[in-house]
Amino acid sequence: MIELIEIVQHYGVRPVLKGVSLRIERGEVVAVVGPNGMGKTTLLAVMAGVLFPQHGEVLINGIKRRETMEGEFEIRKKSVYLPDKPWLPAGRTGLEFLLAVGVLYDVERERLMEHARRLLELFDLSRLGDSPIRTYSAGQKKKVALCSALVADAPLLILDEPFSGGLDPSGLLTLKRIIQRLARRHSSTIVLSSPVPELIEELATRILVVREGEIVAFETLEGLKGLAGHRGRLGDVLERFMFPDTHEKLECYFQEFLP
């Protein structure tokens, strides 16, 4: 369970998050959506404990982040944060990297070896598993980074743009199915950001819409449609929340430049 209470986050003068409060239950898949530069990544980083907000509290399973050494260590052992652009050890092979991550998370040795190999196989990286990561393509690097998040066996996954970064259709499908399985069968809590409405529609139990550092909506798909007063596709519904004046701007542009 994740709970954010009145989070205010600044990097400089401009506040990126303005008094954000929310609660995510165990086993939920929450998709964070919003326009660029409006606080999605910051929100995930605050949940993950990478950022220390200027105001407010973050609680994971009832434990306050950064309050005590034991509590924070416990949280870190049970959660994985994968930023949109992780940095991987270039000289290590994919398998070595996954093992190193698994060891950090105290994954049982036999399971770790087998799980790492199986994940590489799932993401079509078997042949590259023993090659240094620096030889991987962009998409393959993204895949091995995703494998690292999964090999940790953590019950809380915070994934920033997991479907971007050059994933091929097979990679997208594999990740989608694993996320669904983790949430449904293992009660894992997964918070992810993605700009692709079709993926969110399939995955998310609730959708969190962030705009200008505030929560505009935090609802199930049906709830969101009800709020928007629009029963169409999620893309259209989100557009009403995130870009209410886009249609108006487009009409104006067409009239002036593309009559």
Binding site: A48, G49, Y81, P86, W87, P89, E96, A100, V101, L104
Partner: peptide, 11 residues
């Protein structure tokens, strides 16, 4: 073992 960013920093 190096586990890169963010694993090294976090754990």
């Amino acid at each position: 073992g190096h586990a890169g960013w963010p694993y090294e920093r976090m754990l």
